[in-house]
Structures are given as C-alpha cells and as structure tokens.
C-alpha cells in the first residue's frame, strides 16, 4: 500500500522541485508497464525503446507544467499514447503481425512456482498464443486492453489517456476480450 508520500503524484511534484531521487522511484515503478505497453503496440523492440525514451524525455521536459489534476499514470500514458500515434502516422501503421518472432525474450518467461512441469509447458504455449492474438488485435482495442492490464488504468483513465470516450473504451475492451477468448479456444 502506498502512502501519500509515496504516491506517484507526490513523487512527481518532488521531482518537479529538483528531487532526482523521486524520479528514479517513479521510473522504477512505471518503466516495465510502459515499456511493455509500447512494445505490444509497436511490435518492435527497437521502436519500442525509441518511443519509451521519447515518452520519458517528454515527461521530463514537461515537468514544470505538471499539476495534479489526474493520476500520474494517466498523464504518463497520455504522453506515450501521443508519441505512439505520431509513430503510427510516420510509419503508416506498419505493425508486424507476428509478435513472437520479434520478441525472443518471451521464451524465457519464468513460470510460477506452483505450476506443475506438465502444466508449465502448456501455460507457456498459452501465453505465447495470447501474445500472438494480442498482436493481431486492432491497435485501439489492444491499447485499451494493455492500459487496463499493464498500467492498471480504469475505464475513465483509459479514456483520458487515449483521448476517447468512456463508452468507446468499454466497447473496445469488450471486443478485445471476445477476440482473445475465441482465439484461445476454451481456455477462459
């Protein structure tokens, strides 16, 4: 449980006043979800790294104008979303279909201790299948699902971060889950 002193917004305000250590804590907290969000969306680690770095640099540059009007994560993912849209426009939305080929590190995913060896292989295959299905989703639906699962944003926060309406986000999420359930074939 985070205290008020440890909240994202408090850390960002501290960084705004020159506390680089507060930024380091923020970065440590959000770097993984943000990176995965970008990686899933663009499909290429090199592009994801570029977008990831640009997003954080934009945040650093905009630190002076930061005000606590919404969750920090909403602000961060709003910046990342805008950068991603710029990337789509520049590259004519040339996303690769097969995500697993671009991410060999996924084969090294550690399995939970409770998983039995015979189930471990099955789980790994299902995760790979899930990632493949995720990569095949339309970008907007995939983005909504990633912001929910990775960043833990609510419907309202997703709507704010992506600049869409709440009902639109609901529709996208519902459609994405239906596609994934169908693709996994009875795993749900």
């Amino acid at each position: 449980m985070r205290t008020d002193d440890d909240a994202d917004e408090t850390l960002m305000l501290r960084y705004q006043h020159g506390d680089a250590g507060a930024f380091a804590r923020l970065y440590e907290r959000h770097k993984g979800p943000l990176y995965r969000y970008l990686l899933r969306q663009c499909g290429q680690p090199t592009v994801a790294e570029e977008l990831f770095q640009d997003s954080w640099l934009k945040l650093i540059a905009a630190r002076a104008s930061y005000t606590v009007q919404a969750r920090f994560a909403t602000w961060l993912y709003r910046i990342a979303h805008n950068r991603l849209v710029d990337h789509y426009r520049a590259s004519a939305r040339g996303l690769p279909v097969s995500y697993a080929d671009d991410c060999p590190e996924w084969t090294d995913i550690p399995a939970p201790d409770a998983v039995q060896p015979e189930n471990q292989e099955e789980r790994r295959r299902q995760s790979e299948r899930l990632l493949a299905l995720l990569a095949e989703l339309p970008e907007a639906q995939r983005e909504a699902l990633l912001l929910k699962e990775e960043a833990g944003l609510s419907l309202e926060a997703i709507a704010q971060a992506t600049g869409t309406g709440r009902e639109t986000v609901k529709s996208r999420l519902r459609y994405a889950l239906a596609r994934l359930r169908q693709g996994l074939g009875g795993t749900s």
Partner: peptide, 19 residues
C-alpha cells in the same frame, strides 16, 4: 464483463520483459 481472470493471469506471465 470487461475482466477475464484467465486472460489476465496469462498476460501477467508475460511481464518479465522490460527496457
């Protein structure tokens, strides 16, 4: 209806990757 625990669990297993 917008949350599928099985899918969420499967997705959580893919979170090892980072920058």
């Amino acid at each position: 209806e917008l949350h599928d625990e099985t899918i969420a669990e499967l997705y959580r297993q893919t979170r090892a990757v980072g920058p």
